[in-house]
Each structure stands twice: as structure tokens, then as C-alpha cells.
């Protein structure tokens, strides 16, 4: 009996060592030489494998980052500046600071302000719907409301608000990977700079139709009146195709455009205080008055 136990132990031990030796030899022989930094970079990544960087996953990003000559060509939108700094440290390179971005829904045509004229009863997909027709409201530009963006978001940052029929972005979860931007067939969603302390001004409408038609279709739409364009003193507003667009790199967050917009299409986000429309309007009036006086003075001088 004892002998049997001993023999069993001996044979199993020998067998185990033998197999270990084979495994070791094979692993040595077939080892793939790889830059060890790839593993280090991959570890520094968020690991969501979302593809927001344009590569197949975090591993692919790491390989590309190690291979690339400088880090300008690669950027992880999810990890943002911090991750890129870590990556730069591992690779011993410099990285330029990029402003953190966030997905912004540029449509505020909620159900109550945008009357429906049709009922869609096909499959629940924005892309199917958008390919089929212009949408079930008078606005053929805005959100069609089937939630393709919600399905595309891997971070649970988007959800449809059943009351407005529009998607809402949870900024704490949004990583600006851009999946929703690609998913939206109407190009309603845009990646914008988060802005200082999360403050920013956005035109929440992309309707390019002419004013009267837009007015009929949606009460919250940009009607292309151009008042914001005339008011802005920072040249931050681009006014093309009957619709205003705020260039976030130029906007100084003075909130004047928001105050003068007649339809409320311009939204201020993240400001600590609600907008005091009267005060801002007074400020604009004051400035205009001064400008007019200055112009008058100039004219007088010229006359002299």
C-alpha cells in the first residue's frame, strides 16, 4: 500500500516536471519578440476597447503609439490628457495638451415645440428612418429620435428623454469617443470642447431651412435671424446656411448671444448662475450707445 502511494507520487512528480520542461522549451522557442513598451502603454490605457481613437482597441492603439514618431497622430479621447501624459512618460516623448471634449446634441426640438405631422411605424432605427424620409415633423434636419446614439454609446452616457424625445448626454460619463457622432445619420451630435469649468455656449439647432418654414416646424429652432451674429464682439459666431454656429475656440462666454436669441436656440451650459437677460441686454445697449456716440464724434471730427 505504502509502495503504491510512493510510486504514484514519484510518477506524477516526474511527469509534471517533464511536461513543465517541454512547455518551457516551447514557450522559449516560439516567443514573439515584441516591444515591451506596448504592454506598458496598454496598461496605462482605460481598457474600454471602444475604438474612439480610430484603432481596433486599446492594444492596437498602444502598438500604433509605440510605432508613431510623435504623439500628435494618436489620441485617446476616453482617457484624455492624463492618459496621454502617462503614455508620453512611458515612451519618453512630449504630448500637446488637448482640451477635453464632450458630445453635444444640437437639437432642442422637443415634442411639445415640434409638432409631428406623421407617425413612424417602421423599425426603431434612426438610420432606417432617416434614409426613408425627412422625419415625422416639419423639420427635416433635427433629431429623429430613434436612439441610435444611445445604442452606440458604450459608456451609458446617453439616454433618450421620453418627455422631449431627444437624447441627453450625461457629461460625467461621456468620454468623447465619438461613437454617437458616427451613429447619428442627421449629424445632430457634435464633439465640442467642454469649456472652462464645463461652461460653454451652444447653438442647439442645425436647421438650414429659411426662417418662416423653420418657425412653422419648431418653436425652439434657429430661424437664421442673425441677431447673435451681429451682437457677438468676439467673431465667434459663424453664420452660414440660415443657421448660426458658435466656434468654441473663439467664444469668450459673454452670454450675449444667448440673451438676444429670440427663440432660445442658444443654450448656455454649466454656468453657475442663470442668465440675467435684462442685465446682458442693458450691457449690449450701453455698448451700442457708446459705439454710436463714438461714431458720431468721429464723423464730426472728419467734418471738421
Amino acid at each position: 500500500m505504502t509502495q503504491l502511494v510512493i510510486w504514484t507520487i514519484v510518477i506524477l512528480t516526474v511527469l509534471g516536471m517533464l511536461l513543465a520542461a517541454i512547455l518551457f522549451a516551447v514557450a522559449k522557442k516560439f516567443k514573439v519578440e515584441e516591444d515591451p513598451r506596448i504592454d506598458d502603454v496598454e496598461k496605462a490605457m482605460p481598457g474600454a476597447n471602444c475604438g474612439g481613437c480610430g484603432f481596433a482597441g486599446c492594444r492596437a492603439f498602444a502598438e500604433a503609439a509605440v510605432k508613431a514618431d510623435d504623439l500628435d497622430s494618436v489620441y485617446c479621447p476616453v482617457g484624455g490628457g492624463e492618459t496621454m501624459k502617462k503614455v508620453a512618460a512611458i515612451l519618453g516623448r512630449q504630448v500637446k495638451e488637448k482640451a477635453p471634449m464632450v458630445a453635444v446634441v444640437r437639437c432642442n426640438g422637443s415634442c411639445d415645440v415640434r409638432p409631428t405631422v406623421n407617425v413612424y411605424c417602421g423599425s426603431l432605427s434612426c438610420r432606417v428612418k432617416a434614409t426613408l424620409y425627412s422625419g415625422d415633423t416639419g423639420c427635416s434636419w433635427g433629431c429623429v429620435g430613434c436612439g441610435d446614439c444611445v445604442g452606440a454609446c458604450q459608456f451609458g452616457a446617453l439616454k433618450m428623454n421620453p418627455e422631449t424625445g431627444l437624447p441627453e448626454v450625461d457629461e460625467s460619463k461621456c468620454t468623447a469617443c465619438g461613437a454617437c457622432v458616427k451613429a447619428c445619420p442627421k449629424a445632430v451630435i457634435e464633439l465640442r470642447a467642454k469649456g472652462p469649468r464645463g461652461m460653454r455656449e451652444v447653438v442647439c439647432c442645425i436647421n438650414r431651412d429659411r426662417g418662416p418654414q423653420v418657425k412653422k416646424a419648431c418653436a425652439n429652432a434657429c430661424i437664421g435671424c442673425g441677431i447673435c451674429f451681429k451682437t457677438c464682439t468676439h467673431e465667434a459666431i459663424v453664420f452660414e446656411n440660415n443657421v448660426a454656429y458658435i466656434d468654441y475656440s473663439k467664444c469668450k462666454l459673454c452670454r450675449e448671444c444667448e440673451a438676444v436669441c429670440p427663440t432660445g436656440a442658444i443654450h448656455g451650459v454649466g454656468f453657475p448662475k442663470p442668465l440675467d437677460v435684462e442685465a446682458v441686454k442693458a450691457r449690449i445697449a450701453e455698448r451700442k450707445k457708446k459705439a454710436a456716440e463714438a461714431a458720431a464724434a468721429d464723423k464730426k471730427e472728419e467734418e471738421k
Binding site: 417602421g122 423599425s123 432605427s125 438610420r127 432606417v128 434614409t131
Partner: peptide
């Protein structure tokens, strides 16, 4: 299953 809806888009 909306077979054709999906096939139509993918076909494009």
C-alpha cells in the same frame, strides 16, 4: 424581424 430594413442599408 426587420430583415429588409437592415439589408437595404447594408446593401448600400
Amino acid at each position: 424581424i426587420p430583415l429588409l430594413d437592415r439589408i437595404r442599408l447594408a446593401k448600400a
